[in-house]
């Protein structure tokens, strides 16, 4: 029941991930951060098999940072997305593949174009205007289909995100303990205050 959401807009990319760390039906932690920043303007959210997720994400994070240190220049979100795909694709046909789904959001440091990449454990990569992973896809993609526009502002983006989380609270059988929400803008990655305590009435 992990939730990953991503929304792009005019000059930003929003990434949101559920706070619950679960094992079976048990919530082990209610303030988990399922995101890692790869560099100043690229953020990655991950879900999947416990252990694989953080291990893989931090491996990618370390390599992205190593690249930045060696070259005194950051990889673009597109370059990072294709790098991650390559790693995941070679993992897929290895003895023990990583079971990790990812969203990669960023803003190009030069063109200021926002971008979002959807990547699953099979290493299928797709650039998308908005995305979700897991069961959230079935509830949120239709909402995003209806309300998303490529040139929305950050405020509108957060409103759209609220529409999604409200629906998730209404429909998901297990409490996902709210969302960690971050936005990538041309100035870097910023934490977004998000009201997790809002009560949504059931349908």
């Amino acid at each position: 029941m992990e939730v990953l959401l991503g929304i792009t807009g005019q000059d930003f990319t929003l990434i949101a991930a559920s706070k619950a760390a679960m094992r079976g039906a048990t919530v082990l932690k209610a303030a988990d951060d399922k995101t890692r920043s790869l560099n100043k303007h690229t953020l990655m959210a991950f879900s999947g098999e416990a252990g694989d997720t953080v291990q893989f994400a931090e491996y990618i994070q370390a390599n992205a940072q190593l690249y930045s240190m060696r070259n005194e220049a950051d990889l673009s979100p597109s370059a990072l997305a294709h790098f991650v795909r390559g790693e995941l694709a070679s993992s897929l046909r290895s003895r023990k593949p990583y079971n990790v789904n990812l969203l990669l959001g960023g803003v190009d440091p030069i063109t200021h174009k926002s971008s979002l990449y959807w990547l699953d454990y099979l290493a299928s990569l797709a650039p998308v205007p908005y995305a979700a992973h897991g069961y959230a896809q079935y509830y949120c993609l239709s909402i995003l289909d209806k309300h998303h526009h490529p040139d929305i502002s950050l405020e509108q983006g957060i409103k759209l995100l609220n529409l999604c989380t409200d629906e998730l609270k209404r429909r998901l059988p297990i409490d996902f303990k709210g969302m960690v929400v971050k936005a990538v803008t041309k100035d870097g990655i910023i934490d977004i205050e998000f009201d997790d305590d809002k009560v949504v009435k059931s349908a």
């Binding site: 694709a89 290493a123 299928s124 079935y138 993609l141």
Partner: peptide
């Protein structure tokens, strides 16, 4: 479930050499 409506499956490898690939998306890319 449709994830993307922007996943082309034709690739160009010369002035007039084209390859179309259907099947598993990850292998299409690889």
């Amino acid at each position: 479930l449709t994830v993307s409506n922007n996943f082309p499956k034709i690739f160009q490898y010369g002035d007039n050499v084209f390859l179309g690939l259907t099947g598993l998306a990850t292998d299409v890319s690889t």
